[in-house]
Design a protein around this nucleic acid. Structure first.
Length: 270
DNA sequence: CGTGGGACCTGAACGC
DNA sequence: TGCGTTCAGGTCCCAC
């Protein structure tokens, strides 16, 4: 569900409620969403203070006062909320941390693609996560795309190449840069990479400003929906007119993911 | 090593 | 009403 802008929005809305709070208790309702598999976080978390809450790609990063680190990945349907203890516990709530102010941090995730990963003091992540798109240079993007013949859309979804872009923002950025999603990544010129880099930053920043895109489940830590879906040019707009040229938006399936583009603005060959 | 395809889950929307 | 199918903001694993 959540891509970089949604995760960033959750982090920004949850930070004032979490930062500096001490963890008073932990409830595991399902331990199989924790990595290492089945680890109980009680001993690691209780009496610890949450120092910082930040984002790395699509992961939420909690740093504790003992310098240990916890990653939270929301998967497709994960929600992280801070609520009053009297609030009814939603179905599919898998983990609760009770805070020293009495409120509760709750992790809810119907599809269970989300995970809470205990990193401890480990600095590096097993599989390297690619560079952050908001601070990426056109030259670096070009380099990241040079080494693969896969479709550019597929390359943008590869989190080891660039981290944080998902199905919505890949389609939106490619439309803005006027690049066909099936073009080979290694065939993009430096000029096209410059344009794509600008487009990626533009859509991600605009989406963050709008609080993300809510198509189904996504809400921020206060339960608020995002509004960027209203600005989508192509995503989930099959057959609607392209906002630039009015050609009906096409939908194809690429890597089992639906892909939306304008056949006129995004030509298959240059 | 790089790549494509299926697997992992639940629930909402739709067609019959 | 009810049942079957399809689809969904994401990775992960496993044959080629």
């Amino acid at each position: 569900m959540p891509e970089l802008p949604e995760v960033e929005t959750v982090v920004r809305t949850i930070r004032p409620r979490l930062q500096g709070r001490q963890i008073a208790g932990v409830v595991h309702l399902r331990s199989d969403i924790v990595r290492p598999i089945g680890m109980l976080l009680t001993d690691a978390l209780v009496t610890r203070t949450i120092c910082t809450i930040t984002r790395r790609a699509k992961r939420i990063v909690l740093t504790l006062d003992d310098r240990n680190v916890l990653f939270i990945h929301l998967g497709m349907t994960g929600r992280l909320t801070v609520c009053d203890p009297a609030t009814e516990i939603e179905k599919h709530t898998h983990f609760i941390a009770v805070l020293d102010d009495g409120r509760q941090l709750r992790f809810t995730d119907p599809r269970r693609f989300g995970k809470i990963t205990w990193l401890g003091q480990t600095r590096e992540n097993r599989k390297s996560i690619g560079p952050e798109p908001l601070t990426l240079s056109p030259a670096r993007l070009h380099r990241q795309l040079q080494s693969t013949t896969r479709a550019i859309k597929t390359a943008l979804l590869d989190q080891t190449r660039i981290a944080g872009i998902g199905n919505i923002y890949a389609d939106e950025a490619l439309h803005r840069a006027q690049i066909h999603p099936m073009r080979r990544a290694c065939d993009l010129s430096i000029e096209e990479c410059r344009s794509l880099n600008r487009a990626i930053k533009y859509v991600l920043q605009r989406a963050i400003r709008a609080g993300g895109s809510t198509l189904r489940d996504y809400v921020d830590a206060n339960g608020q929906r995002g509004s960027y879906q209203q600005s989508h040019a192509v995503y989930a707009r099959t057959d609607e007119p392209c906002p630039r040229c009015k050609t009906p938006i096409a939908r194809i399936v690429l890597q089992a993911r639906s892909t939306h583009f304008c056949p006129t603005c995004q030509p298959a060959s240059t």
